[in-house]
Design a protein around this nucleic acid. Sequence first.
DNA 1: GCAAGGTC
Length: 863
Amino acid sequence: MKLIIAEKNDAARQIAERLSTGKPKKDKVYNTAIYRFEWKGEECVTIGLAGHILAPDFCDSVLFDKKLGWYSVTEDGEMLPADIPDGLARPPYDTKRKPFLADGISIKGWKLESLPYLTWAPVIKLPAEKELIRSLKNLAKKSDSVIIATDFDREGELIGSDALNKVREVAPDLPVARAQYSSFTKAEITQAFDNLVSLDQNLADAGESRQHIDLIWGAVLTRYLTLAKFGGFGNVRSAGRVQTPTLALVVERERERMAFVPEDYWQIRGMGAAQGAAEDDRFKIAHKTARFTDKDAAEAAYGHVDGVATATVAAVTKRSRKQQPPTPFATTSLQAAAAAEGISPARTMRIAESLYMAGLISYPRVDNTVYPATLDLGAVVSDLAKINPALAPVCKKVLAGPMKPTRGKVETTDHPPIYPTGEGDPSALDGGQRKLYDLIARRFLATLMGPATIENTKLELDVNGEPFVASGDVLVTPGFREAYPYGLKRDEQMPPLEQGDAVDVFDIKLEAKQTEPPARYSQGKLVQEMEKRGLGTKSTRASIIERLYAVRYLKNDPVEPSQLGIAIIDALSQFAPRITSPDMTSELDGDMTRVERGEDTEEHVVTHSRALLAGVLDELLKHTQELGDAISDAVTADARVGACPKCGKDLVMKTSAKTRGSFIGCMGWPDCDVTYPVPSGVKVSPLEGEAAVCPECGAPRIKCQPFRQKAFEICVNPTCPTNYEPDLKVGECKVCAEAGRHGDLIAHKSEKSGKRFIRCTNYDDCGVSYPLPARGKLEATGETCPECGAPIVVVNTARGPWRICVNMDCPTKEKKPARGRKTTTKASAAKKTTAAKKTAAKKTTAKKTTAKKSTTKKTAADK
DNA sequence: GCAAGGTC
């Protein structure tokens, strides 16, 4: 039997289909899909891997000793020189700069002292896809020859080489060959398998050099930054060959914005309309001098038009222009287009993967922007019409047309550009999937359609001697726009006016403006910029940006660096500039090309890189204190929500050590005891200028961003009059009424805790009291709860009014979990609830830990 | 607890 190893299941299936005379038989070894067929009279089987099946990692069971070098300790305490493959690890004998630390240095724990050793630590390869490796070995034992048929590129050669090594463990003498193909056409696949070559170990070594260099630099710098100022577990400060230059791009743009000096300019604008036209038919007019840089000139011109009610049409010009249909989607252009529709690149890839797996779209990781001749475009369009009723009319038009597809600049033959397969059931898709599927389907149709024609009407007006202009675009021939409305501006229809006509003018205003700094990157633009600079690959860029958000170097969208992100770039560009520049990637590319060509070796390239890193680390270790302080200051600055009304120091977001909950506290603690609760369910950020201080109580006002809802601004102080009406009567006490006396229920706030509650004026007799939510201005309704008789109040949260029965024990509360954290009125009940909460918190933590563990395990098993 | 690259 001939064993054919492909990089992914899809490739395994396609190879089987192309080589087989009949239909290949789908089968399974353990849980792995395989395809059996006959080729040239021989029994064959293809198996698809899942990319890399081995993952490089440090060999952390070894220790370092200056005499022995790397060694391991046996159970009996015997010290044996470590058996390190490849000879890649070399103790730093040749770096005289660094004094040796005591013997027995381990690289296992994260310690600053061990980093010089980590720089030189041996790298081994651990199985990452255990299931697949098991299946692979099982097949290898039954085979009498093997063909490596992974993708024809550097990583593919490495994946093939790793697979071969695993095969060799059970079948050391199995004859091996390599099939090189760049597309899945029958001709290309047949040609590749008819002309087998041998595995290119140099190419695989080049790939492995990249793996090692990325791991070593990434691990050493990440551990260094994390340890320079340890911020507690879960606060890793990462660095890497791709992520750090990407972050630097964002920081650089932010610096340009900060350095930008705005310039004043003036605009004169208003509205115009054909005489007697309805208000809806008005159009914007502006002075022909779009930007006056001279204030006097602007005021002089405005003096001529201020209060003028009519103008004359001086000229009408019509010009039509063509908008060409877009090119087919490759990964980056899909990510950019989806980002413009509010789907982040990382989410785009997750959704695209699910659509691909469900068979609705073609393979989503492609650079190719030219449809292959073998793709039957017409068949796809008619299939698309069948499963998408909404697209059927436009599909019909496409089929009736000449159908000449557009083409982009990049042409490869491994995969077609991303297109809808015309199969599956799009009506079953959920929101995000549907949105992305529509984008892909409509883009595909657009690439087969004609240009759009847009007619522009330009009006020149004479407003009391001053030249004004108005302009409107109208889509006259929709062309591809019929299928692809994304980013299309709304029509601005100008009325049918002619030279000499009179026009009404309104609301002419002189506006003082300032020039704007360069815009921040959108996530889509950032992906494109990374591609332009050679950072990352189509498969990794999205996840790398996501990672930068996860470690809180980046925030918001458009992309903005945090103070921490800026501090990291400042520190690294000063002491480790290699890692902040995209040059490291281009240099690595050069190194790898030489390894590929046999002009250099993996060992030499990696060792050279280790030596460079050793120098960088030396430099960094001299400035750990300084760098740690900078990181620490930046983290504080990121947590700042405003100034303390009591002592003026910074108020920051803090995490309670006991409850792990967050609160807003003063940096002056313990001298200043000002604290506020954090609004729940929202992302909090500081405001600037006048808006940052509450005029009523002096506490900071903050911006709250709920998930996918409009942001709002509130005062952080829950007992501020802007949030709360004190001493409000919300009803009458039922218990007192039954006892034949009168008691009023009044809303209070505690001086001590700042907590809000309702209490009866005869509390000493009846003991009636109810808790209130921390925030939201109260309103009495005069109504009582039909279930329990307690008063009903309206709490005006910034997200809208919220009507509640104040009794926490009321049966109406059973239906939905309490939103507030307030406990019941009685002290015992309060205790109980607190205890329950603690248990719940513990449970959640335990759950999280287990979940995390199992995920780790799962990932390890998957890899 | 670390990177970046494949892919599920």
